[in-house]
Amino acid sequence: MPDAPIDAATFAELLETVGGDRDFLAELVETYRADCPGLFAELRTAMASGDAAAARRAAHTLKSTSASLGALGLAGQCREIEAAAATGTLVGLEARVERAAVTYGEVETALRAAVIASEAS
């Protein structure tokens, strides 16, 4: 399922990387869920004030952490925002940011489900 919000293989690999510790994995997901709204807020603020550097940094962090948890689609969207912001202009990026925010909503739901599934297994 290439379009799934969370790539199952990456998520499984992450569990293995942290030594199979499911509680720790759940904590990681919590950290991610705690950080992301703030990053989207930073991104929107940067858009509003035209601060391309700040937008780029927030998009970069969103991309990086999303990829780590297997949210590859969201990571891809953030990568495009990051690359666009890197050129110094933010024109037309608002729509992409909002699309990414919608994707994040799906990712969050899927992550919670994945954690529950992993704890049940």
């Binding site: 030594g19 950290t31 991610y32 950080d35 990086s64 952490t65 780590s68």
Partner: peptide, 16 residues
């Protein structure tokens, strides 16, 4: 790494 989440993952992986 400036991303706390990534640092945390790496640290745990390395400690493991």
């Amino acid at each position: 790494d400036d991303t706390r989440l990534n640092r945390t993952i790496l640290a745990r992986a390395l400690e493991t």
